[in-house]
Design a protein around this nucleic acid. Structure first.
Lengths: 335, 335
DNA sequence: CTACACGATTAGAGCGCTCCAACAAATAGA
DNA sequence: TCTATTTGTTGGAGCGCTCTAATCGTGTAG
């Protein structure tokens, strides 16, 4: 089980350890003849360099630490996918752990990642206090995804939630809706800008805003609908929901209450998850370019790693409206 | 940016480097007084041990390599989640990369993981040839998920697809169904045992089997339904589909064709993804314990790492039936 | 008062590699 | 011919840590 080292390769090829090192790193200043000899010896022995020893000696790292608040969430999984793609293309490796939406656990996860002295750190939807992030940013370049920050040492990649909700509202209004309610994402990340976008858009059109506190789950969406019905008064003709899950829960509850979507009530989701695209659901929603987010995060990190940039970068990606079958003109007013 | 080392802590605490090392590893043979001094010094300096240097010096690793054929797939993401949970609880870290369903890329991914000399390797749904797996297994303990192997050096964790389909068929038959069609998963992994389980169960009950080639997507499910309708003849009263996505696609197509689920046709999915649980979908399906799969994989690995076991372990997990709202008694025969 | 054991501490070698300065050999310039 | 350069190669120090064996005090028994 004990693998061959550079020493072994050097001995077999009849050269010094340093020469083997040069060959392994693809240095141009090695004669073809020696290079071939070294490569052969390595091949024979099944040698491959020890990444950690290399990292230690060179005082550099090819590891990017990734902390995912929740891998369960397909949204983050796709971002990791994007990160992985560019990281690997650039010769970096991802080391991942999850924070489980608990600040304490995230702290530990962060420490654990830092103990590998990674070249950079990507935090996906972290909930740790800003101070912890600042601390981490002192040790390695940090990029934040789905969380904003004013720290000048960290980069951020976000979708413009304010704009996204605005798109949803504009779409509904252009269909003729006037009573539009927002189900918000509660404490969830990005909940605030989405709410703000809704409020601003309603105000812009001179319509009364109505926000119901909710969460990023389908049960919460259903609950919000029942709340709407229970509180009495006129029902809205359209819903701008916290995310796709919330939307789907809302749709179910609406249908259970005898209301048709979109004939009676239009519903817009957020995220454009694979769920929304299912023909059975066919949800009008706001798309965030997830893979793109991952790529940009990785690129931002690599730029810092290579010291190509010191000023913070704030990516704010434009979401887009995806119109499917859950929005339509409002029903004619009952008279 | 240059972080303090053990040397720095030692100097500040007025002790030797070795003593700091002992404290950091929680050795009992250190006087309380010194321990406190060291801990204080470390705290003051913001010191934390360098995982790679530690690994190199101790000739041990706390890293588990994970190769995911496709992180996009929520199924694997949840397994990684399970892996992560037990790995972290045991003080191990995950280093992840993806193979992108290409044997060549998987090979490279594998090499890259091995260059970190991980304590063990988990391969999720790998497509590389068996020889490559055997090669990897020579360097580190390997556990395979969603892929079987005869290699005595690797462990495997799979769900019993044959049994799962059997459960679906039995359930439908107990409801009174006789014409049950299977939409299979085509070339997809685990497609074969699921098909086999269907065939065996039908045979066991003396019913004629009917398999329609399909895939693990919702569009494929819809297409299979249209194929069923187009080919004429009597429609089945129940569908055992390739997976949940396939099921949802099939349901949509059925409804579009004016058939009600489950009144006219019952549908069973496979995997019990979060999709199936949505109230809007409420799909009867076969549950694979994904988190459990991840846990078992991690445990199998750790047992090998600790040399607690040398014989291969073959986990075959029992799937279970989750009854929701897409299955019911068949319609009375039209006479 | 010496011998001995025992717990606490430390020096030093070494993990597998990179990097630097030094060097030998071949080539160029004067 | 002799001194510069260039090109290819090498020894050795050192990255931050662990581990073994040796050392240093103490307390205790003889």
């Amino acid at each position: 089980m004990t693998r061959p080292t550079m020493e072994d390769v050097a001995r077999r090829a009849g050269v010094s350890r340093a020469l083997v090192s040069l060959v392994m790193r693809g240095s141009p200043k090695v004669s073809e003849q020696r290079r071939a000899a070294v490569l052969r010896a390595a091949e024979d022995l099944g040698y491959s360099p020890h990444a950690m020893a290399r990292s230690l000696a060179s005082r550099t790292s090819t590891v990017l630490g990734v902390m995912v608040s929740d891998l369960h969430n397909a949204f983050f999984a796709e971002i990791v996918d994007g990160l992985d793609a560019v990281a690997r293309a650039e010769g970096f490796e991802l080391i991942i752990n999850t924070g489980g939406r608990s600040a304490a656990r995230e702290r530990r996860a962060l420490d654990s990642l830092l103990s590998f002295r990674p070249a950079g750190l990507a935090l996906l939807g972290p909930v740790v206090p800003s101070a912890a992030i600042a601390g981490a940013a002192n040790q390695a370049p940090v990029v934040l995804v789905a969380r904003s920050s004013r720290l000048s040492t960290v980069d951020t990649v976000n979708d413009d939630g304010e704009m996204g909700s605005g798109l949803a509202v504009d779409h509904l209004i252009s269909l003729g809706h006037k009573r539009i309610t927002h189900f918000d994402g509660g404490e969830g990340s990005q909940s605030a800008p989405r709410r703000k976008g809704y409020l601003l858009a309603m105000q812009r059109h001179g319509l009364p805003a109505d926000v119901v506190r909710s969460e990023y789950t389908d049960t919460a969406g259903a609950k919000a609908v029942r709340h709407l019905i229970d509180r009495g008064g006129e029902l809205p003709t359209a819903l701008v929901t916290a995310n796709d899950f919330n939307a789907v829960g809302a749709i179910s509850a609406l249908e259970e209450a005898g209301l048709r979507v979109p004939a009676d009530v239009s519903v817009v989701g957020y995220d454009n998850t694979s769920l929304a695209a299912l023909r059975h659901v066919s949800l009008t929603t706001i798309d965030q370019p997830r893979n793109e987010i991952g790529r940009l995060a990785a690129e931002a990190l690599l730029q810092r790693v290579r010291a190509q940039r010191a000023e913070p970068k704030r990516h704010l990606l434009n979401p887009s409206l995806v119109i499917r079958s859950t929005t339509a003109k409002p029903p004619p007013p009952p008279n």
